[in-house]
Design a protein around this nucleic acid. Structure first.
Lengths: 139, 139
DNA sequence: TAATTGTTGATTAACTCACTCATGTTTTAG
DNA sequence: CTAAAACATGAGTGAGTTAATCAACAATTA
């Protein structure tokens, strides 16, 4: 029952980019050093976040990455779904499930796991990068 | 971000045993058929639950498994921790973490993930097998 | 034009999950 | 008393995922 390193690294990278937001760009090298992330792995993550429309990048000397959107408009749930997929804590809760029990009106497993997923989503979707960088939720 | 099949099967098996509670024992074969669980895998799970003190078993012909404790005294959180380990959604939230950031007073990742874990635990630790078999929480 | 930096895709080592197999022990039916 | 039924245990395995690495390339700027 875990989130991946990919998500953790992604959040840490965005934490650095949020701190730099509005003032400067950051190179992957700097992010990697500050947050102890393997640089090649970090690159995959930054690329994924760029493709998802969260970051822009500039090539060449003096290049680097920066946030496109405002930190308060990006939720942690959004980031984790980009990097890790759906938050569903068990297969049968997801939309594309072929679990035979899910077709019954009342599958106890699905019911409980559905409420777990909702609780997780409720926290992560209402917690933005701005809250995150501030160290707590202030909204 | 998932619970294992082991936990899911374990909950399904306990669902059957809760239904039989007080009236009869169930053989692994019956549980396996009713919940579509591979029988050898189910056995590992039943053994683990027995070692944890939730079940008793009787060998030989006419043998089988049965719940020792009352369904309302067993929480889903307890079951999942037996089969899957701690509920911590990310390494740094667990007690035995060597994450360099965890030592700082305020690691944002740890803070958020801690509240996610608490939310999950709050649901699962207050939901018993009795609620589970009833199809909803009634306490 | 050479150095720096981002971009992309392929590859890989290690690990975990979900089983499976082989073998043994206990109990009861007949 | 013997054979079948059932639980007990540990080792092994194939598929898939994770986390990371490598190689080669493209764009920018000093």
């Amino acid at each position: 029952m875990k989130f991946s390193k990919k998500s953790e690294y992604g959040l840490r990278a965005l934490l650095e980019l949020t701190r730099a937001y509005g003032s400067t760009t950051l190179q992957r090298h700097d992010i990697a050093v500050r947050q102890h992330i393997p640089i090649e792995f970090l690159e995959q993550i930054l690329l994924a976040l760029k493709r998802a429309g969260l970051l822009s990048s500039k090539r060449g000397a003096k290049g680097g990455y920066s946030l496109i959107k405002q930190p308060k408009e990006i939720s942690l749930g959004h980031v984790i779904r980009i990097l890790d997929g759906p938050l569903a804590p068990i297969g049968c809760v997801s939309k594309t499930s072929d679990c035979p029990y899910a077709k019954r009106a009342h599958c106890p497993v699905q019911q409980v796991m559905g409420s777990v997923r909702d609780a997780i989503a409720d926290i992560l979707d209402n917690y933005t990068l701005a809250d995150f960088a501030a160290g707590s939720k202030t909204t």
